[in-house]
């Protein structure tokens, strides 16, 4: 009796497994796009994907489903290089898309294929502090004071963290008459106040907001707004520094994948629609600074004016910044290793 029971259970298990795989394969027969993105864009693309699917349906009559994958920008780029079938990538910095391009999946001129260096929205780096700003943090020079605990993720793995680092460096240069040695001293002091380096921007935000570690979080502007929205204005406050960096998170079609999957047209349209009024509105609603002047004017109260410098002007572009600061043995390794 018991043996029959066992045979039946074993049989049932095998059948269940087979049905499971069969269902999995039959579900893949419709028009889908995979957008491989970085950590803080979850909410943005959740909204945008619905809007684009509606737009595409009215324009072509086709139903399109957009799947999302999120993670640290560098790690995501690596997955795409290793074969993650991304039709489009929307990452934190051009350097990561350059890396995919070097593996042969995207043409080298990718950044000139869409307006504004292929960055449909921008952001900047701001501070998030505890409600009431108990440590009176106003600007970058408050972060290097002794006894201030600063939370920022690791620039080795997180795109956002690299923007944070470069924003601090750029500020230090501007107040020290472009003295690189003084800037390095300033950034060294700053990272002495960092007790823990998370691997991604979202991880650092939860460390600060949910686990209550640190006095100030250096974060993407959109990430800071979102944290305040989720956790309450009485608990967290945004502080805009006097100067910061213009962060340009770029987008690109992954040509090799899109051509193979036959999704090149819809993938291109998906990125182009980010520049439309609706796309720009969605970006602004999710606290990304829109490129469109009209939409920017409409949301001007939301985005405070501050002095923004670009990575091109201060660091000579991503390739240079990466080589000098974040490569193995670069300046970050030297100052954080000490």
């Amino acid at each position: 009796m018991k043996t029959t029971g066992f045979r039946l259970t074993a049989l049932a298990l095998i059948i269940a497994a087979l049905i499971g795989t069969a269902a999995q394969t039959s579900a893949q027969q419709k028009l889908t796009l995979l957008n491989v993105s970085y950590d803080p864009t979850r909410e943005l693309y959740q909204d945008y994907n619905t809007a684009f699917a509606r737009y595409w349906k009215t324009k072509t009559g086709q139903n399109v489903t957009i799947n999302q994958s999120h993670g640290g920008s560098g790690a995501q780029a690596h997955s795409v290089i290793d074969g993650l079938q991304a039709d489009v990538v929307t990452l934190a910095l051009a350097y990561d898309i350059d890396a995919i391009s070097q593996s042969g999946q995207i043409p080298a001129n990718w950044q000139s294929r869409l307006p504004n260096n292929s960055t449909p929205y921008t952001s900047t780096i701001v501070f998030l502090v505890r409600g009431g700003n108990p440590k009176h943090i106003k600007d970058w020079n408050d972060l290097v004071k002794p006894g201030i605990s600063v939370i920022t993720p690791s620039p080795k793995t997180s795109g956002g963290a690299r923007w944070n680092y470069l924003a601090a460096w750029g500020y230090a240069l501007s107040v020290n008459h472009n003295d690189q040695a003084r800037a390095r001293e300033f950034v060294t002091q700053l990272y002495k106040n960092v007790p823990v380096l998370d691997s991604g921007a979202r991880g650092a935000t939860t460390t600060f907001s949910k686990r209550g570690i640190g006095d100030v979080l250096i974060a993407w502007e959109n990430e800071a707004y979102l944290a305040v929205k989720e956790l309450g204005k009485d608990k967290l406050e945004i502080v805009i520094p006097s100067r910061s960096i213009l962060a340009e998170p770029p987008v690109s079609v992954v040509d090799k994948v899109a051509n193979k999957r036959g999704t090149a047209t819809v993938a291109k349209a998906y990125l182009e629609y980010l520049y439309s009024d609706e796309g720009q509105e969605i970006a602004a609603r999710n606290y990304y600074r829109p490129r469109s002047k009209a939409v920017a004017a409409k949301y001007s109260s939301q985005f405070q004016k501050l002095n923004l410098f670009t990575i091109q002007d201060v660091f000579g572009g991503w390739q240079n910044a990466q080589k000098t600061h974040f490569a193995d043995g670069g300046i970050f390794d030297q100052i954080y290793g000490k």
Binding site: A10, L13, I14, A16, A17, G20, T21, A23, Q24
Partner: peptide
């Protein structure tokens, strides 16, 4: 849930 059950079902078999 479906994926977890599928993967563990096959792995178990």
């Amino acid at each position: 849930i479906r994926l977890t059950l599928t993967a563990s079902g096959i792995a178990l078999t």
